[in-house]
Design a protein around this nucleic acid. Sequence first.
DNA 1: ATGGCCATCAGCGATGGA
Length: 253
Amino acid sequence: MKIATWNVNSIRSRVEHVLMLLKDNEVDILGIQELKTEEKNFPFKDFESLGYYVEAFGQKAYNGVALISKFPFESITKNVLNDTEARTIVGIVKGLHILNVYFPHGGEYGSEKFFYKLEFYQKIKNYILKNNLLDVDFILMGDFNVAKEPIDVWDPVMLDGTIGFMKEEREAISDLMSIGLVDAFRHFNPDVQEFTWWDYTSGSFRRNWGMRIDYILVSKSMLPKLQNCYIEKTFRKLEKPSDHVPVVLEISV
DNA sequence: ATGGCCATCAGCGATGGA
């Protein structure tokens, strides 16, 4: 079974690319972020006609998350943090608890958005602990908007202290992972430098000026089931791409 | 080149993204 995450940067602009990922990579369960639309404008039919179940939680213009699954949802909860922004959706599929999150961008150091981002990380951690999700087959995936280690950015010296690679942000994601979550990509690729996001400006993709800010984290009980985890970079080469690419996890069910 | 993008909403410029 394949489970994937992808920040699509507008679902209405990226439907064809998402359908391509589902078909070509045979993805069974997909979490997407940055829908940038309300549910009423979400292209449900494109996915349902392929046989997928879809649960979307959106808002106008910004944020928004969805889960797309070949298997029916045993349960769905939107907005687990009771936030004013549409950033979280959790579903149970085939006994797996899957929390799909669009973490805040955060803005400049010390800004209101910066503190919102750090608090958001704390709240996600508390939600996981409070609901005992470390004791079940649990997957936390999405756009974390933080690169954890120097290997996760193209120039750790130049980017030190910039958005997505500040000390406080890196401590926030480390703190979240320290409760017992394993970074699936890093589990299979301990020394590999690969990125999931490249800026649209400055020919960043061509120069490989990227960052790894999208993750699939799993609880310990998932470890025996993991088979592979890879970043599907090809989607950044398409016409009108998202600035992020999908991360795919293969597990045995 | 002290440069370079993209999507949205509202209504062609401002805002957010990372």
